[in-house]
């Protein structure tokens, strides 16, 4: 069991992420969840070290620790050697292992940025907050955290919340799938939302999965190749219908995602007018992912129908990314203020 951190203990972070290291190497040094408590104890028991937190996600592996070594470079080397030994990396693999080592204020700043989603592949994503919380909780339960890491992580969580609450870093959609979800949510109650896939392309599948993961009620798949429709429907716990039957079912769904390979429009204004009469003005979202387009753009002129083609979705996602980039400076400013407030910026030198 590590001893309580002394006042002179120094914070260190050694890590690798999607920017520094390719997935072939990252997957070799990832810590599966059951192995984390053992890893935490091993890091804390390294000579000169006591506290530790291990963060292992699909995009990053980071070791946070407190050490009493004179030389920070030595601390980085010790942690790096630990990773090489722990995962039994061959010489070539060890050489390909590109890591970053951060100390004191830099390590704290890095953690604050990670928790706030600023270091994520999708800027501002929120999942990382929960992942860091889980990593810290595991360390706390294993008994390898002390005063230094406890305070650091509490400060990091409060900073992460502040960044999310005071900026719009997490607002807006950054992918076509999440744009589809946002649109559906602003038209319908997702829990009551029925989705139809016309055509079984990869992009339409991604959109449908995004909708299902956010609580869409049911899914119907229709494809020229019926077997493919059945396969996709089974994967998404939905139902499949023959390709010549999708038109008759259109009025029963709230979102239509179309991605056929037809060289001409397959959904026309007259069809949708009839559908809307049957729907008694219930709104209908149509997402046309096909190129060439499946849906006649005049469909958007029909009352209660909201048509988005791939360019419209892409433009919204691009704007979402730009908006998050614009928020970056404000987020960094909050992080600097928090580092100052918690006395972590001063320990930089």
């Amino acid at each position: 069991m590590p001893q309580a951190t002394e006042k002179s203990g120094r914070l260190v972070c050694l890590g690798l992420n999607y920017r520094t290291t390719p997935v072939e190497v990252r997957e070799k040094v990832a810590f599966p969840r059951p192995s984390v408590p053992a890893a935490l104890r091993e890091v804390a028991a390294l000579p000169g070290f006591d506290e530790s937190v291990v963060l292992s996600t699909c995009n990053r592996v980071e070791l946070y620790a407190v050490h009493h070594l004179d030389d920070c470079a030595q601390a980085h080397a010790t942690l790096r050697d630990y990773l090489v030994r722990r995962f039994d990396l061959a010489t070539g693999q060890a050489e390909a292992l590109v890591t970053y080592g951060l100390d004191s204020a830099e390590a704290a700043r890095h953690l604050f940025r990670v928790v706030s989603g600023l270091d994520s592949m999708v800027l501002g994503e929120t999942e990382i907050f929960g992942q860091v919380k889980d990593a810290y909780k595991a360390a706390l339960e294993t008994g390898v955290t002390g005063r230094a890491l406890n305070k650091l992580f509490q400060h990091a969580f409060s900073t992460g919340k502040k960044v999310r609450n005071q900026t719009s870093i997490q607002r807006g959609s950054t992918s076509v799938g999440s744009v589809a979800v946002d649109l559906a949510e602003k038209i319908h109650d997702l829990a009551e939302c029925r989705v139809m896939l016309v055509g079984a392309g990869e992009m339409s599948r991604t959109c449908a999965q995004s909708l299902l993961s956010r609580g869409a009620k049911s899914i119907i798949v229709s494809n020229r190749n019926y077997d493919r429709a059945v396969e996709l429907a089974a994967e998404m716990r939905g139902s499949a219908i023959k390709f010549d039957a999708w038109e008759a079912s259109m009025h029963e769904v709230d979102v239509i995602i179309s991605s056929t390979s037809a060289p001409h429009f397959v959904i026309h204004p007259e069809q949708i007018r009839q559908v809307m009469r049957k729907r008694r003005w219930e709104p209908l979202l149509i997402i046309d992912i096909a190129v060439p387009r499946d849906v006649d753009p005049r469909v958007n002129e029909i009352e209660g129908v909201y048509l988005y083609d791939i360019d419209a979705l892409q433009a919204i996602a691009d704007e979402g990314r730009r908006e998050r980039q614009r928020q970056l400076a404000a987020c960094e400013q909050i992080i600097e203020q928090q580092l100052e407030k918690f006395g972590l910026a001063a320990s930089r030198e």
Binding site: G172, V179, L183, N300, Y306, A315
Partner: peptide
């Protein structure tokens, strides 16, 4: 929604 003006107020 109709004009694809997906911004602050929309959310």
């Amino acid at each position: 929604l109709k004009k694809h003006l997906i911004g602050g107020l929309f959310y």
